[in-house]
């Protein structure tokens, strides 16, 4: 573990007790994050990417069982940290930006109140100082007339503006880690790019690490340093963004990439790729590769435990030593 490792997660497992047994929502996730680095967690709905981030923040709902071999953030053992310690970290050293700007602000308080609260919870400064900081942050996220916005209520702002406020709120204490859970999904397409650009610029400027959770691979390609692809609660491929996009090694990653149009490569009018089938049930004992029911290269060996292949930098979990790339080329 080098000095600039900010977050280290090993073998993170999340179980949710449900009516018919246990939902094995996340199984054995490993990842590292360095200071200033952007990791993108990609996957379909229900793949466990949001739960993974909530597990890091210590914000899992009641009843969800979390276990891991290791989970450290800035040297703090998150698995054994007290509630008080977690509260001190949340909002201060690690902050979160949620998907829904329309509902993630409290309708009863002005945005000024909510921004100022974020700072006052962690810093013993005066209200005036906190107010000045709120104005500074609102300007930083590109909100004009920031001073007068402080007195406005969330319902008086548009979705795009609200998400800027949510971002400003997350950055009030200059955290070392920002977790953005689909921060642009609920916004108009024209606003999405702006907000994303803003997030990336701010994380660079403030040297913050970011975990960007998304199902939009186009977004990932533009902003992430590292990518972790999740499928049905498992990490199927992880590596530097460039390497994963250049040489996607897991059949699922390749399937995902075929689903997005690529300028110059995708023919106009030609149908986009799809991945046939549905995500398997994760209730009860789950073994082997979860993708085998939808994978064109599935073999009986997929039922056994699959080792992580590749090297320290770019890894993938597939029974085929080359991730079935050769088989795919033959078909093509």
């Amino acid at each position: 573990m080098t000095d600039d490792t900010l977050l280290k997660v090993r073998n993170l497992t999340l179980d949710i007790p449900v009516g018919g047994g246990t939902l094995r929502a996340v199984r054995g996730i490993d990842f590292d994050l360095k200071r200033g680095e952007t990791l993108s967690i990609v996957g379909e709905s229900g793949s466990g990417k949001s739960l993974t981030s909530l597990a890091v923040m210590g914000l899992l709902g009641k009843g969800i069982k979390r276990s891991a071999d290791e989970m450290t953030f800035e040297g703090t053992d998150l698995l054994r940290a007290s509630k008080r310690k977690m509260r001190a970290l949340r909002g201060d050293r690690m902050a979160m930006i949620f998907q829904e700007p329309m509902t993630s602000l409290n309708p009863a308080y002005t945005i000024g109140d909510q921004l100022i609260e974020a700072l006052l919870l962690h810093r013993s400064v005066g209200r005036e100082t906190a107010r000045a900081r709120a104005v500074e942050l609102l300007e930083k996220v590109g909100i004009t007339a920031a001073e007068s916005r402080l007195g406005q209520y969330p319902h008086q702002l548009s979705g795009g503006l609200r998400q800027r406020v949510v971002i400003a709120m997350a950055l009030m204490c200059e955290p070392d880690l920002v977790i953005a859970d689909e921060p642009t999904t609920a916004l108009d397409v024209t606003i999405q790019a702006q907000i994303l650009r803003l997030l990336v610029d701010l994380t660079r400027e403030m040297n913050m690490a970011m975990i960007l959770i998304t199902h939009d691979l186009g977004v990932v390609a533009r902003v992430a340093d590292k990518v972790a692809v999740m499928y049905a609660g498992e990490l199927v491929e992880t590596g530097p963004a460039a390497s994963v996009f250049e040489a996607p090694s897991h059949p699922y990653t390749r399937g995902l990439l075929r689903c997005i149009p690529q300028p110059g490569k995708t023919e106009r009018g030609a149908p986009l790729g799809t991945i046939p089938g549905i995500v398997p049930s994760l209730i009860g004992e789950v073994s082997g590769c979860a993708f085998r029911t939808r994978c064109p290269h599935a073999v009986p060996g997929c039922r056994a435990a699959i080792p992580m292949r590749g090297d320290d930098v770019h890894g993938y979990r597939c029974v085929h030593p080359d991730g079935a790339i050769s088989a795919e080329r033959e078909i093509a």
């Binding site: 949340r90 909002g91 979160m96 949620f98 993630s104 709120m169």
Partner: peptide, 14 residues
């Protein structure tokens, strides 16, 4: 159960 309660917790509110 609403999102803004989760936001408040994410801020570090007790």
């Amino acid at each position: 159960n609403s999102d803004f309660i989760r936001t408040a917790r994410a801020k570090g509110a007790g």
